[in-house]
């Protein structure tokens, strides 16, 4: 719970700065060339101001919360989460996703997706090879054919149907 409000502090601090940057950036956007126009910077400036204000309020709120702990009660789910923000599983999934995206256009949709399902399924604890293999083969193939029927060309990569 302590952590919860600390996170809110970081977020509100960050969005406060973001809001300021947005305001500055919007101010230097070009003035309108044409008659009667509101320039492209006015609306985003307004959004920037709103972000700054709400961030400031949130920052104060999170400070209070951190001290007294009465405003926001963490849900039971959150009480369990006491470890690091990114645990190893999540990091590996993200890395796997990055590799998947890189592979996507080169190897084609079907093969990269097969690899993805196998790798991720294994990571998550699937140890029954038969269903895992079946799903990893059938699911991407079915999607590939389905999209093909709809006229969407997915990257075929190194295999050709």
């Amino acid at each position: 719970m302590e952590k919860n409000s600390v996170f809110d502090r970081y977020v509100s601090g960050f969005t406060f700065l973001l809001g300021l940057l947005v305001i500055i950036y919007s101010m230097v956007l070009p003035k309108p060339i044409f008659a009667g126009q509101m320039g492209p910077g006015i609306f985003p400036t307004g959004i920037g101001v709103l972000i700054v204000i709400v961030s400031a309020v949130l920052f104060r709120e999170s400070g209070k919360e951190g001290r007294t702990g009465t405003i926001a009660q963490p849900t039971s789910d959150q009480q369990v989460t006491t470890e690091k923000l990114f645990n190893r599983h999540l990091l590996i999934v993200i890395v796997a996703l990055i590799i998947y995206i890189l592979l996507f256009q080169i190897l084609g949709f079907v093969i990269s997706s097969m690899a993805m399902i196998l790798a991720l399924g294994w990571l998550l604890g699937a140890r029954k090879w038969i269903p895992l293999t079946l799903i990893s083969v059938l699911f991407p193939t079915a999607l590939f054919l389905l999209f093909g029927m709809l006229g969407v060309e997915l990257p075929a990569g190194i295999i050709h149907f």
Partner: peptide, 30 residues
């Protein structure tokens, strides 16, 4: 539980939507 978090989320969404070509001036922003 926090109204402010909803507002922050709303405003960030609005900010994200500002990225791209502005229809009215035809110029790019963000």
């Amino acid at each position: 539980k926090s109204r402010n978090k909803a507002f922050l989320s709303l405003f960030i969404g609005m900010l994200i939507s500002m990225i791209g070509t502005d229809l009215v001036s035809g110029s790019e922003r963000f």
